[in-house]
Amino acid sequence: MFTTAWTASPQSPSIGFTPNWSQEGFWRQSLRQVVRLSAGGDRVRIRLSNAYGTSPLRIAGATLARPAAGVGAAGAALRSEPVRLAFGGAASVEIPARGEIVGDAAELAVAAGESVTVTLHLDAVTGPATFHAQAFTTSYRGAGDLLAETGGAGFDEATESWYFLSGVDVSAGRTDGVALFGDSITDGFGSTPGANRRWSDALAARTGRPVLNAGIGGNLLLNDSAWYGEKGVHRLERDVLGMAGVDTLVVLLGLNDIGFSEGAAEPTYRPAPLVEVRELIAGHRELIRQARGRGLRVVGATLLPFGGSDHWGERAAKVSHEFNEWVRRSGEYDVVVDLHGALGGAGEVDALCPAYDFGDHLHPNDLGYEVMADVVGSVL
């Protein structure tokens, strides 16, 4: 019996927040990606997504290994011999446009908190690539077939995004997984890159449970976006409910729906409708309905303070206050966690405590993410 131990929610190819390879795609190259698992087991299998591909995606080969510590090209080095992966017994596979596959299980004993490296050989033109924009972890590519490359020297390019890889499952047989569903705060913006200091990482360490990060930077509950993924009410099925071993959903979503209309006229924010609190509540009720339909316990979180940020304004303040009061008092969530109260500054209820502020008055820093994990972990 398998348990999902890591996820990254797929996004359509875009310029994104930092330079990436999603729009150009890959051809006659190998792609090496490092992910940290929140559960262990004796066997491992991977999930690959071509959700936004308009043509079939050919995977010429894939391997799994343990990464060696290092930076730059050395970060692509391995400390174990790569294990060849198979798909329906074959070394290669073609994933249909808009499709997803789960590979065969490979023998590799891994522990919770351990990282693994997945290498894909992409010998045919992929076209624009389904990816996850903000990994806060380095991925590598190089020319040719580098599946067996252990030293990492052939991987001469790097980026901070994940491509095609949407999940890793382990033979843990656990059914107590926790999925975090949200935007850039859940995705880990403001945490130290390469250090695994997102609040999902902290929650996994605190609870010892599998924790899946289903955050997308900039994501909206009610509207699709070119950069920021499909709206939350549509993507929950794919990004959470389809994963193995999840029994709890934590929802922290809606701040961008409120705040994008307050910001500067960035093209990625437009159109940015003026969202009413009743619309946010309806969206959250839809998430609750979907999750409970699969038997999940649903935890609702109040929106963090964001006073002084580019999302803040008189209207945003009003709607966020009304929404947070609904979360606290309505009784519609199975459990409520008041992250707004936990991360607020003393005497300034609408602003992040300076000790927890990454610097933009919107996202927590490493310490702030640890506080979030403590608060949520106490009710799980």
Rank of each mutant, 00 (worst) to 15 (best):
Gly300Cys: 09
Ser309Asn: 07
Phe87Cys: 04
Ala265Tyr: 12
Leu339Tyr: 05
Glu94Asn: 00
Leu220Met: 12
Pro271Arg: 03
Tyr269Ser: 09
Arg66Ala: 11
Tyr228Cys: 12
Gly331Asp: 10
Thr119Ser: 14
Ala153Tyr: 07
Leu362Phe: 01
Val299Glu: 02
Glu279Ala: 12
Leu57Ser: 13
Arg328Glu: 07
Asp350Gln: 05
Gly331Pro: 07
Ala179Gln: 04
Val250Ile: 05
Gly293Ala: 15
Leu108Val: 07
Gly313Pro: 01
Leu37His: 01
Gly217Trp: 00
Tyr228Trp: 15
Val118Trp: 03
Gly307Arg: 03
Ile95Ala: 07
Asp169Val: 02
Asp338Cys: 06
Tyr356Gly: 15
Ala282Trp: 01
Ala135Tyr: 09
Ser115Met: 06
Gly263Trp: 00
Gly167Phe: 14
Leu241Ala: 02
Leu296Gly: 01
Phe2Ser: 09
Glu262Thr: 00
Leu380Val: 15
Asn365Pro: 09
His361Ile: 03
Tyr369Val: 02
Val251Arg: 01
Ser320Cys: 14
His234Gly: 10
Val299Gly: 07
Arg292Cys: 03
Ala62Leu: 00
His340Val: 05
Arg285Met: 12
Glu157Phe: 15
Gly89Glu: 11
Asn256Met: 10
Ile15His: 12
Asp338His: 04
Gln290Arg: 15
Glu237Ile: 01
Asn256Pro: 04
Leu147Gly: 01
Ala265Gln: 13
Pro271Ile: 10
Val275Lys: 06
Ala69Met: 11
Trp227Ser: 15
Cys353Phe: 00
Ala143Glu: 15
Arg36Met: 08
Ile185Met: 02
Asp176Cys: 05
Ser320Met: 14
Tyr163Phe: 11
Trp21Glu: 08
Phe2Asp: 14
Arg328Trp: 00
Gly182Gln: 12
Arg315Ile: 03
Thr18Gly: 00
Phe323Ile: 04
Trp326Phe: 05
Asp357Ser: 05
Tyr369His: 08
Leu362Val: 03
Val250Cys: 14
Ala317Phe: 05
Ala77Phe: 08
Trp199Cys: 02
Ile95His: 11
Arg98Asn: 12
Ser166Ala: 06
Glu325Gly: 00
Leu274Lys: 13
Ala112Tyr: 15
Val336Pro: 13
Phe155Ser: 00
Ala112Cys: 10
Val71Asn: 08
Asp257Gln: 06
Val240Glu: 00
Ile15Asn: 13
Thr18Gln: 14
Ser166Gln: 01
Ala205Pro: 11
Pro273Gln: 10
Val375Glu: 13
